[in-house]
Every structure is written in C-alpha cells, then in structure tokens.
Design a binder for these strands. Structure first.
Lengths: 197, 197
DNA sequence: CTATTTGTTAGATCCGGTTCAACAAAGCTA
DNA sequence: TAGCTTTGTTGAACCGGATCTAACAAATAG
C-alpha cells in the first residue's frame, strides 16, 4: 500500500513523512492535556514523530494549527470580494459554505482548559479585522465613503465571526454552521440597512 | 532640583532612574532610524540609559510603547460603559476626549519606514475587537440580542479606530482628534440606526 | 544607625521563529 | 543500471522577546 495518505502521488521527490492532520491531531491532544501555552512546538513535533524543523514545513507557526481551516474560508471570501461582478451577498454566501473549522471549534469550546484564551482573542481580532477591511474596501470601490464603509464592513465581519463562536459554543457538531452564518448575515443586513446601504 | 520628573515624590524607596517618556522617546528614535523589527529591546534600553531588565518595569513589551496612550483611552471608555447610568453616547464621548496618542500617530504615519505595519495591524485588530465587544456587552446587558449587539458594537469600534487612523494620516497635529471622532460617531449612529437602535 | 520600601541590574532560562547546509527518498532519463 | 533533479527531512546554530530570581542601590521612617 504505497502513497498511503490520499490517492497516488503525482509529483516527484521524497514523499512527505507526515501531514497537517497528524500534526494538528498531536497538537490538539497536547493542548487538551497540558494547555496551549505550556505545549512547545518541540513536543508537538515529537508526538507526531517528526522533527521540530519539519513542523515548520506544515505550519507557519503554532497558532496556525488552530486557524488554518478558518483562514481557508477567509481566503475564499476575499477572492469572491475581489470579483466586481459578484455581489456582496453572494460573496458572504461563499464564506458560509466551506469546510468546518474543527480545530478552532475545539479550541473555543475548551478554551479554559486549554489556556488558549489569549491566542483565541488575538487571532479572532486579526481575522475579524481582515474580513471587515476587505468588505470595506469592496464597498469603497463601489463608491461608499470610507468611515461608512468601515462601519458596514466591521458589522458584517462581527456577524460572521460571532456566528462561528456561537456555533462552536453550542457544540460544533450538533447544528450546521452554514445556517448559523446565514442567520447572522441576515441580522447584519437588517441592522446595517440605513439610507443608502 | 530633586524628584525631578513631576512634583515631589510622596513615597519612600529608590526613585525611578527613568520614565516611560524617556524610554518611549528613545524607542521612537530607533524605530525611525532602523525600523521597528530591527530594533531590539536591548538597544532601546541602552539608548535610554537603562538596563534591559528595567525596560520591563516600564512597559510590558515592545509593542506597548506604541499603544499605551491609546490603551488609556480604551480603559476610560470601558469604565464609562460599565456605568449603567451613563448612556452609550456619553461613553463614546469619553473616548473622544483624552490625551492624543502621539507614539501611535507617529507609527501610523511612518509605518512604512518603520516597518511597523505588521504590529500596527495586529494591535489595531486587538483594540478594535476589545472596544467592539465592550460596547456589545453593554448593549446585551440592556437587552439587545447578541449578534445584533456584536454588529453594532463592531460598527462603532470601527468608526472610532478608523477616525484615529485618518486623523493620524492627515498629520496628527494639524486637525483636532476629537472632531474627527465626533464625526465618525455620527456616521456610525446613522448607519446603525435600523429598527430598534 | 537600622529597617523597610522601592527600584535597578545582571544572568540564566525558555520558547517561538529563521536560516542553512547536509542528507534521504522518490521519479525521470539515458 | 547509473546519474540527475526534485521534494522533503533533519540537526544545528542563531536571534530576539519575555519571564524569573537573587543581589544590589537609594531613598525614607523611626
């Protein structure tokens, strides 16, 4: 059974000895056992059976373990926002449809036992701002004044991220994320519908 | 001329050999000369005539040099929001009236030459989220549903922070900050005035 | 003068992150 | 089969931010 991971390897070169999944699983185990801060990258790599150096071939840093799925959604959203033909509502729908951010949900639920509250707050802030400014840029490009655009963008961003948090807090598996996101978007649209969008 | 800094020292013990101001000035000089990342805490301390260890008696970290004035305003805002008697509008006015965040303004204007864009983005995100969630909590306490509260809070927060950025970009000294903030708050209030606040 | 309080300092230590050169395993081509 | 290229792993050194601690210094109160 060669090329074990998924399908056949198409490319040349030495095959990877591990995968993001393996690393992420090992990391989440350790986070639950000892907490996020107390777990060093060296330990994660050791448990995953990989060298510390190799860890950085899979993740740019420790925090990325929590965020990489979520960040994938954000990238998709930003791509959709860049397309002038696609209306804002459709771009937001793009964000709502995507892979479920499991590692993030785990971190949110077990934030206390993981001691990951600091990182979660900082990471959430960075993502929310990224989403908000992207939407704001789009609105500015379409002619909206800058402060107004910032307010609207931040509002939608807060709706999306808050929805993800509430979804995770309710037990990520039990309810579909896309529903929660659609509802949140609807609320935001209602609140943000002052004279001229 | 004893107890040089400000007034007489009331308390016992060894008097401080330096001050936040001295450290901050030395740091800003170095940031402008070599950039933010390239300037180590050791260098800052050396230029200020203080040991590296001592630096941490004045600032919790390198980034705090940029943010401590701004953070003071945020703390004031959060305190005002905690007072149930004080209406939201008044609390926002509290934020608008305060010391001018000079180190931050410098960093914003010279972000490129300082190479401080990363830190500015991350720090801004953290502050904007902090403001936004504080306002949202206040609204929730007053009976607003959570997603709606998050949207409104994030909107006001974005307005405030965006206003500070635009004020700095225009050359912090040339225009009064409080005016810019009042205008931004007005825009936010207008955008966020959907059915039921 | 002594005790207490406050602050400074050097040093060790830890960890995240970067960089680099050496090595290993695969496919491709002859 | 023998190289060559590509891709990936590994160890080691290095840097800087941050924490901690014990020793030292300077002021005041009694």
């Amino acid at each position: 059974m060669r090329g074990s991971v998924v399908g056949m390897r198409a490319s040349r070169g030495r095959p990877p000895a591990s995968s993001r999944e393996v690393l992420a699983d090992a990391a989440c185990e350790l986070f639950l056992e000892q907490g996020y801060e107390a777990t060093s990258i060296t330990e994660i790599a050791r448990r995953a059976g990989v060298s510390r150096s190799s860890f950085f071939n899979y993740f740019a840093g420790k925090s990325e373990i929590l965020w990489f799925v979520f960040d994938g959604r954000i990238d998709a959203l930003l791509g959709a926002l860049d397309d002038p033909a696609q209306p804002l509502a459709d771009a937001l729908a793009v964000f709502a449809a995507g892979e479920a951010p499991d590692t993030l949900a785990l971190a949110i639920v077990d934030a206390r036992t993981m001691g990951v509250e600091q990182e979660l707050a900082a990471g959430r802030a960075a993502r929310q701002l990224r989403i908000g400014t992207a939407i704001a840029h789009r609105l500015e490009r379409d002619g909206t004044e800058s402060v107004r655009a910032a307010v609207i963008g931040a509002g939608y961003a807060a709706a999306l991220v808050t929805a993800v948090w509430e979804w995770a807090d309710r037990g990520a598996g039990r309810h579909p994320l896309d529903r929660a996101l659609d509802d949140a978007i609807a609320v935001a649209r209602e609140v943000l519908s002052a004279p001229s969008n």
